[in-house]
Amino acid sequence: MLEGLPPAQGSDATETQYENAGRLGGKLGRFLLSSEFGLLLLVVLAFAGFWLSTRGFSSPFNQFGLSRSAAVNILISLSMMSVIVSGGLDLSIGAIGVCASILAGWLMEACRWPAPASVAVGLALGGLLGFANGQIIVRTGMHSFVVTLATMSVFFGGMIILTTAKPFDSLPDDFSLPAQQHLFGAVSPLLVYSVLIACMMAYLYRLTAIGRDMLAVGANARAALLSGISASRAVTLCHAMAGILAAVAGVMLSMRNGAAIPSMAGNLGQDWLLPAFLGPVLGGASLSGGRVSVLGAVLGAVLISVINNGLLLLHVGAFWLQFFLGMLLLGAVMIDKARMRVFASGDRR
């Protein structure tokens, strides 16, 4: 449509500047530079190290337990990641996850609903609470930190009022079945679900319009708005999605426990916050928004699960565990940083 336009007399200097971007060249080079690769390396390293140095790590029993807690950690990480995309954060995901699983538990126990329907309604509640977060943020213009700080109390408090903190513990057997089955003797089906959900997230960000809208809004809300993207819709959807993912994590946790328990994510659901941020951040997501990696968040969550599990098997003294966890985390980010330096030297853009 622009044929016949006189060519711009451009100097070629700018062009050459960008062509030989990497000494390693091409996609492989970019992957070796990515934090995903660094994480993969660390996961393999930690896995191999624990496999060789502890007894019990390699046992099917332990691998099964590891896969099950990794499944939940992955979902918690993805939940937070879906909000980090928009440049915000959600402190209330723990509260949402608990609320959702409690509702599902109530439907199964008190209303005798079948498990699938109850879980579906629980997930819908998660989505609804996330949606509420998003709407408050969009309509008031307050920072998501403040809003979710308050709604964390409101959601959790509301749940406590309604349940008087009583768990729902006579759930139908088919509900907790997925948490007990073994695939190949050592893998929990929950991990398969988590990986499937992660694939759906990757699909969302790579191959759908709304996923791209979310990324654009997270990176630069004003530019996205002017490009005809509804920033408020994208932000609301990010929060709603975080709510649904948190609900899935909550339901998985109650499958594992065989009961929907108000305290399963700690007071106000705060126990989830650490893994929630660690996964995406290790995975290379930018806390200011607009850049995410689903694979990175998954690997980050797996790394944390492996380290947690492996440290328990090493006899470092019960109370020094947390110290070593901290040091390993520091080590992980430092190694990652060093790797970037090594690979990037000479071909930084």
Binding site: G65, G258, S263
Partner: peptide
């Protein structure tokens, strides 16, 4: 922790239940 202890070879457990229902599984 409990799963890990079982992996390490402990074979009998005295458990303070973290949750009366949640520790059942």
């Amino acid at each position: 922790l409990i799963e890990s202890l079982a992996s390490q070879g402990y074979n009998a457990f005295l458990v303070f239940p973290g949750d009366p229902a949640g520790s059942r599984n």
